[in-house]
Simulated scan of single mutants.
Amino acid sequence: MTTILRVEASIKGEAAVSRQLTGRIVERLLAADPAAAIVTRDLSAGVPVIDGAWLGAVFTPAAARDAGQAATAATADALLAEVRAADVLVIALPVYNFGVPAQLKSWIDQLARKGETFVYTETGPKGLLTGKRAIVAYTSDGTPLGSDLDYASGWLRHMLGFFGITDVEFVAADAIVFDRDAALARADAAIAALAA
């Protein structure tokens, strides 16, 4: 059975265009595979920021962790387990100040663990989360996807690839303030064209 991990990142809740797009993308995938399991991770309330305590916790063997380390590592482990179990990731990427939202950055930081999501080899880094597909719902008020001002999509594509997820597609409703209807129509056409 296919597992789809839907990752929401907008602080706008149900009003978010990115949330509307991820919903439509999931509907498209379910139309082709009605038995697929959906897991939703809503990052809008925030994700713990990594720090020295986090580093100590996740790199301490589970049996040797104290209670605080165990609690810290449990969050990171739960986020990683969701990604490992997913065949398809549907990720909301609302652009904030030309970049990724802080909570989405923190989610990626929680996942970036040497020996878990990547390793370094003689020829460079190697991602360990291979065989997955990612569909990113990119939304912005004024930043066109792939423009010189877009510091979000390239970074997310790079990080996913660093983890071994190289099958990455973008569905964009970008530069919405200039022509909302046209932006949404482009996104709908991209969703309809997605291979399910």
Rank of each mutant, 00 (worst) to 15 (best):
S10H: 13
I4W: 02
T143H: 10
I50M: 14
W54V: 14
A134M: 13
A182D: 12
D42H: 06
R157P: 12
F178D: 14
D174N: 05
R28D: 08
I38Y: 01
A32P: 01
I135L: 05
V49I: 15
D141E: 14
A192T: 07
A64W: 07
A85N: 13
T123D: 14
L21S: 02
D167R: 11
L194Y: 05
M159E: 12
E14V: 13
Y120I: 03
A173T: 09
G99A: 15
A193C: 10
A92R: 00
E122Q: 13
I50T: 15
I135R: 05
G131Y: 02
A183Y: 03
A57G: 12
P144M: 07
A112E: 02
V39N: 05
G131C: 03
A195K: 15
A92S: 04
R180L: 07
K12T: 01
G127I: 02
L29C: 05
R41K: 09
R113M: 09
F98N: 10
E27G: 02
V17S: 09
T22N: 04
Y151F: 13
A36D: 11
G46E: 06
A78E: 10
V39E: 08
L30K: 14
E14F: 04
A196W: 05
Y120E: 01
T139V: 08
A71V: 10
V17C: 09
G146L: 06
H158R: 12
A193N: 10
G164P: 03
P61W: 15
P34K: 05
S153M: 06
K105R: 14
V39C: 02
R19V: 10
L160K: 06
I191L: 07
V7I: 15
G68W: 12
R65F: 08
D77L: 02
A63D: 15
A78L: 01
G124W: 13
A137H: 02
I50Y: 09
P94V: 03
D33P: 01
D141T: 13
A9H: 07
V47A: 05
G142N: 09
T130L: 07
I25M: 07
D167K: 11
A9T: 09
G68Y: 13
A189D: 12
G13S: 09
L29D: 04
A190M: 11
R180A: 14
T139N: 08
A63E: 13
E82M: 06
A195H: 14
E14L: 13
V95D: 05
V88R: 04
P101N: 10
R180G: 11
I25R: 00
V168G: 06
G99Y: 11
H158G: 08
L21Q: 02
S140C: 07
R186W: 04
A35V: 11
R19L: 12
P34C: 10
